[in-house]
Design a protein around this nucleic acid. Structure first.
Length: 799
RNA sequence: GGGCGGUUAGCUCAGUUGGGAGAGCACCAGCUCGACAAGCUGGGGGUCACUGGUUCGAGCCCAGUACCGCCCACCA
């Protein structure tokens, strides 16, 4: 009879039972230590992708392990409102309905986003359930919940009162499509072909010209200087003179600044503070005017005079024609370079000067840097810890305002005289002039400004709740490398600023899963793989196993082989339990009566200790590999085969079930469903496995030398054949195997003898090496001596 | 340009203090004995990217080269 473990119905049933019985629930409990894993809140419009699945696999594995160890485990789940991203999704939806954001107006649009979310959003939490994620589903939070809005407001006001939030006209990344500013971290660089044109700027004194290379001729209209490197001898004499900007024929100075790259183009840079970040910085340092000729729509603005209203391409053409007519173009070449684009819509970013809200970072980040240096938070692996520190050190002031409609509106009000009022609740009058005509700031906050409050806003902050007392600070974070600067670092400084404590102690930076062909996984490349497909095909347990196995390196090509391996493991264990249960169920109890029974208990014990070490070091792939070999090789292939002849004995079955019970516990964090399913079928199981205690060591004593020798002998004499020919108890089998049997083939023995002789030669050579004996670790030398003795003994035993 | 990581069996990857090249899958052969749409047992298969160096000894340490990937900065 063929039997295949079918995870589909089983997994769903257990997910439901665990949740309904409240086994995922975490409530404040002063008698137990808390252990908290905040799952990064995914975009509310999203679906589960492999990165999420991987994070669940490792975070939930640790959570289940800690729960079995008796800790009060909270796995916090929820959604992020994901400002621009969500606005995008809903706008596309509106487009398909023949309407648009602009047509609806702000208020109606935001209402539609909420409607849309109620109907289509939130799918991902259902998918979390299908992975067996042991989240406390009662506590699902959304970053736009009423309570969360209060938290964001409180945080903004707090920072403002500290003097760390300010409003300033500075150059920002402007997305002409979304009509909003973006932080540097929301950009994506794309290689593009441009034309690099060299244009002559005549010297005002008529003594010649300066040649300047540009890819954006339209911005010439906003040039306010020409800059050269102070050590560039070609231009040394020109510094301090004036040149005439083409088209607008404005006289501007030649200045020296070491940020100019001597090797690029002609070595002379046209300075356009209004439309380039580097030029902006140079301009501010040299006190230059900031002219703007491009508007928020990406077209030329009124300041562009005759060119107003034109696209940049059209304007560029006109500028080049102007210069060509006067013989001021010396070179035009094609040029491939990377340009920043909006990561959401891939529109080319327009650097513009704009009045925005900023968060000052210098003081805010210092305690976080210090905490990281002291390893109050540890990033794993170590290389990412260094990265986290350096990226905090380098963090510039943060543009936190966005000109979109979906998000947390800034708690800022202006009176007709533009006095700024910042308050937690809507003010009635301007604090400065008493005006009652207040209008609220229309900008919303960067999504990450609210996300950084996640570890405590989910627990009720700003109220002093029992949850907050019990579960803050938390324990674990899992994340992808590129999120460290966006989120983890910010949660750390927010937590330190508000509580004086870091929000978690460990951050696991998980591997990046690549498509099977080694390319980055993405929907647009068609290389995306849906984890839900794998759950349906092979089961959540198999997926968890496979992903943990793949989690060891920084980048790994996703492959279904390792998931298949997990499926086989579940099936194997399922069938092993059937063997024992069909032989007759008895109360599990370790009563070893033969050496292999002591041996398997000792093996499980040893593996248990190694596993704890693996898990504690977040070495998941070795942990699951260990479990695989323990179950397949040791338990099934050796132990169960050995006791088959004695399965009629009650003690034998009781011991085997006791061993199985321990295996189930060890495997449960990795493969929760199949283990719980088998556990339930064992006699007299009153607790669920999910909350069963993690096994204590049993410290089995025994001399397992006979088994080791049997393994060696089995290599020579094909142990399965030996087993078949023998009856009686397993101990006799092993003894029999150790002795060469009559039907052993001479060739096999010779091959083994040759193998041993090679080992002996190697060991003898090393021990004859005086430098080795003198310099090597004494333990290593002694180890070699022991190995030599063992090999010699084995060779001699062959006769 | 800066940072991080990779290059080991046909494939995907292990290899934790330098001291006998490994796993899973795939492939070949035998077995099928009380669970296993399979299972068990055995087997073939590797110049550990390359070049130098340190060492009694290097997949592992050092220097460099090549290729691949990711992150960041950006030379207008």
């Amino acid at each position: 009879m063929d039997t295949l473990y079918k995870p589909q119905g089983v997994e769903q049933r257990w997910q439901q039972v665990w949740e309904e019985e409240g086994l995922y629930a975490a409530d404040p409990d002063p008698t137990r230590e808390s252990w908290v894993y905040c799952f990064p809140p995914p975009n509310v419009t999203g679906n589960l992708h492999l990165g999420h699945a991987l994070q669940i696999s490792l975070g939930d594995m640790l959570a289940r392990w800690k729960r079995m160890q008796g800790l009060n485990v909270l796995v916090q789940a929820g959604y992020d409102h994901a400002g621009i991203s969500t606005q995008n999704v809903v706008e596309k939806f509106l487009e398909s309905e023949g309407t648009s954001r602009e047509e609806l107006g702000r208020e109606a649009f935001v209402a539609r986003v909420w409607e849309w979310l109620h109907e289509y959003g939130g799918n991902i939490v259902h998918q979390f359930r299908s992975m067996g994620a042991s989240m406390d589903y009662r506590r699902i939070r959304f970053t736009m919940d009423d309570g969360y809005v209060r938290a964001v407001t409180r945080w903004f006001v707090h920072l403002y009162e500290r003097g760390w939030i300010y409003r300033d006209n500075r150059i920002i990344n402007w997305c002409p499509y979304h009509q909003t500013s973006l932080s540097d971290l929301e950009l994506e660089d794309v290689d593009m072909d441009d034309a690099l044109t060299t244009i002559h700027y005549p010297l005002a004194d008529g003594s010649g010209h300066v040649a300047i290379a540009t890819v954006r001729p339209a911005t010439i209209l906003a040039d306010v200087a020409v800059a050269v490197h102070p050590e560039d001898e070609r231009y040394r004499d020109l510094v301090g003179k004036e040149v005439i900007v083409p088209v607008v024929e404005r006289r501007v100075p030649v200045i020296a600044d070491e940020r100019v790259e001597m090797g690029f183009g002609t070595g002379a840079l046209k300075v356009t503070p209004g439309h380039d970040p580097l030029d902006f910085a140079i301009g501010r340092d040299h006190g230059l005017p900031e002219l703007t000729v491009i508007g928020p729509d990406g077209h030329m603005n009124d300041a562009a005079g005759e060119l107003a209203g034109l696209t940049q391409d059209e304007a560029a053409k006109r500028v080049l024609e102007w210069a060509a007519e006067r013989g001021q173009i010396s070179k035009r070449e094609s040029y491939r370079h990377s340009v920043p684009t909006c990561e959401r819509c891939h529109t080319r970013i327009e650097p513009l000067i704009s009045l925005q809200w900023w968060c000052r970072m210098d003081e805010l980040k210092q305690p976080a840097i210090e905490a990281l240096r002291q390893r109050k938070v540890a990033f794993h692996p170590e290389s990412q810890h260094r990265f986290a520190i350096s990226s905090l050190e380098d963090a510039p002031d943060w543009n936190i305002s966005r000109q979109i409609w979906w998000g947390h509106q800034l708690p800022v009000w202006y009176c007709p005289d533009e006095h700024v009022n910042v308050a937690e609740t809507d003010p009635d009058i301007c604090a400065e002039c008493g005006s009652t005509e207040l209008r609220r700031e229309t900008d919303v906050l960067d999504t990450w400004f609210s996300a950084e409050l996640w570890p405590f806003a989910t627990l009720g902050w700003p109220d002093a709740t029992a949850d907050l007392a019990a579960f803050y600070p938390g324990t674990l974070q899992t994340t992808a490398r590129e999120i460290i600067r966006l989120w983890e670092n910010r949660m750390i400084f927010a937590g330190l600023e508000l509580f004086g404590e870091v929000p978690f102690t460990d951050v696991i930076i998980h591997s990046t899963l690549l498509a099977p062909d080694g390319r980055r996984m993405s929907k647009s490349l068609g290389t995306g793989i849906d984890p839900v497909d794998e759950i349906e095909k092979q089961g959540a347990d198999a997926l968890r196993y496979g992903l943990l196995k793949m989690s060891s390196t920084q980048d790994v090509r996703f492959n279904t082989q390792q998931i298949e391996e997990g499926r086989k493991l579940a099936n194997k264990l399922w069938n092993a339990s059937r063997l024992l249960l069909m032989a007759g169920a008895v109360e599990p109890a370790a009563r070893p009566s033969a050496v292999e029974e002591s041996w398997i208990l000792a093996r499980i014990d040893a593996t248990r200790a190694e596993l704890e070490d693996d898990f504690a070091r977040f070495d998941f792939s070795h942990g699951v590999e260990r479990l695989y070999h323990l179950i397949f090789d040791d338990f099934c292939d050796w132990y169960l085969e050995a006791i088959k002849p004695r399965l009629a004995e009650e003690d034998v079955r009781a011991t085997a079930l006791a061993a199985l019970e321990r295996l189930l516990k060890l495997l449960h964090p990795v493969m929760p469903h199949v283990t719980e399913e088998i556990w339930t079928q064992l006699p007299a199981r009153e607790t669920r496995l999910i909350v069963a205690p993690w096994p204590e060591p049993v410290a089995v004593e025994g001399d397992f030398g006979a088994l080791d020798r049997a393994q060696t002998a089995a290599r020579i004499y094909r142990r399965s054949q030996v087993r078949i020919t023998l009856d009686g108890d397993a101990l006799r089998i092993f003894e029999a195997v150790v002795r060469p049997s009559a039907d052993a083939e001479q060739g096999d023995v010779e091959a083994e003898r040759a193998r041993l002789q090679k080992e002996i030669d190697r060991a003898e050579k090393m021990l004859a090496n005086a430098k080795f004996v003198a310099n090597a670790d004494p333990a290593a030398v002694e180890g070699e001596r022991e190995k030599l003795a063992q090999y010699v003994a084995e060779r001699d035993a062959l006769g």
